[in-house]
Amino acid sequence: MKKDVKAKFQEALELPAELLTNSYRMTLIDNTNVLIENYKAIIEYEAYVIRLSCGLTIFGDNLNVLEISADEIIIGGKIKNIEFEN
């Protein structure tokens, strides 16, 4: 019920979808940089995979976190594959 109200409110005011709902926003630059807003937390971090609790898994080579803050993460490296859960 609560979600519906939020969705309706967002539709009525034409606000960006990621603002009110719990969704994430991903910006890709080539296959070298990816910015994910609203990523929540890192579950797994290896040089070849980064798993985020928002439901994204990024596979690649030499992955490293260029910048991290409470709601943004920038991942650099050679991105090969992005997997979506749920």
Partner: peptide, 14 residues
Amino acid sequence: VNLCSLRGIKIWDI
């Protein structure tokens, strides 16, 4: 890393 980002400690080039 998660705790750092949650507490507002800026870290980069991980």
